[in-house]
Write a protein that binds this DNA or RNA. Structure first.
Lengths: 204, 204
DNA sequence: GTCTATATACCGATAGAC
DNA sequence: GTCTATCGGTATATAGAC
């Protein structure tokens, strides 16, 4: 694969970005060295500078390419569950205990957030992404409300922000103390914000 | 002040811890150098090693001494507001736009959380602190419920975790996009979780 | 206990061969 | 475009004077 120069170049770029995502998540943005990232991508540090110019350039490119399929993947898996509590449980599990090797995307998200608080460029980009996520969630919940599955006690335009906030905050506490912040807590919170009236039986 | 050796030693220790908190928050745990911390404390790097042995030792000592007066300070200011929406607004403001120079404690909290995800010792300590915070919030809300000020749609034992989660998640989004995540959004979320039935008029 | 000076190591970035 | 070699800077941590 990757016969032409352009293809090889694109392949190297992808490898570097993927390695950077994994390394940043594992060791932190500061803790991850250019050499380590390049090694993971089976390249050398020189290639990083040829493609991105600097470590910051690499990070901004990563932030740009970082398609957060969370909302998509989450809603996709949610659709498979028949009952509402089952759907909410699937949503929570995707956050708390990611199934695939996508286990590191949550960690990377926190790394990027902390970086963004100190760099205006990254902050603007990340702010855009979170706006998109909120909008996606809001639209989805609007449909649920319209179909009568839920009766949220708040307006649709704030529901996205509240759900995202609750999931992030619960996930952070869950990481510190998995037993204390379990599925039962998450389901209670989601049900309260969404106005799920039926008894919240857990579907396992 | 600090005449005796013990007093001077304790004074140096306090200075170093305070400087470490500020530097860690400002530059990140990795980004903050021992020299910079010592300089802020009007000491030298040697004193850090005399007191804490290493940078990690300094951080663990900071984590240990880090009395999170958030719950205390927040509830204190909340008590001054007469109406329930006013109290909730005070709670949110303490998070979103801290009044004093305590502006950096939120940032430090995120730094510590990220560090804790990679170090078991710190994780256990931080987990304990969050348990305390949840318990404090839960007890406070239990009193409000008993006095009829609120009628939460969830059980008391999960209410602490949900409120903490919502506030953390909203604050993170607020930092990226202050205009999108404003007091109105926060009040709607808090009111939903707490079961504040009266129209949520904002008290300014 | 605190400071000065220094050892040691690593990182980001650059230069030049190919 | 990618690699090898290296420079310059800075970090943690230590040794020894006082």
């Amino acid at each position: 694969m990757a016969r032409t120069q352009a293809e090889r170049r694109a392949d190297t770029r992808d490898r570097l970005l993927q390695a950077a995502a994994a390394r940043f998540a594992a060791d932190g943005i500061d803790g991850a060295s250019i050499d380590a990232i390049a090694d993971d991508a089976d390249r050398t540090s020189g290639s990083v500078y040829a493609h991105f110019g600097s470590k910051e350039g690499l990070l901004l490119a990563l932030l740009d390419s970082w398609k957060n399929d969370v909302a998509v993947a989450a809603t996709a898996e949610m659709a498979t569950a028949p009952t509402m509590p089952g759907r909410l449980a699937a949503l929570w599990r995707n956050f708390a205990d990611p199934p695939n090797d996508g286990a590191h995307w949550v960690q990377l998200e926190h790394e990027l957030w902390l970086y963004a608080t100190r760099h205006a460029d990254a902050r603007d980009q990340l702010a855009d992404r979170y706006r998109d996520i909120r909008r996606t969630v809001r639209d989805e919940m609007g449909q649920w409300r319209a179909s009568g599955d839920i009766t949220p006690p708040v307006a649709d335009d704030v529901l996205g922000a509240l759900l995202v906030a609750l999931l992030i905050g619960l996930e952070m506490q869950h990481r510190l103390d998995p037993d204390a912040i379990d599925e039962r807590v998450a389901l209670a919170g989601l049900a309260a914000l969404l106005g799920v009236t039926e008894p919240t039986e857990v579907m396992t």
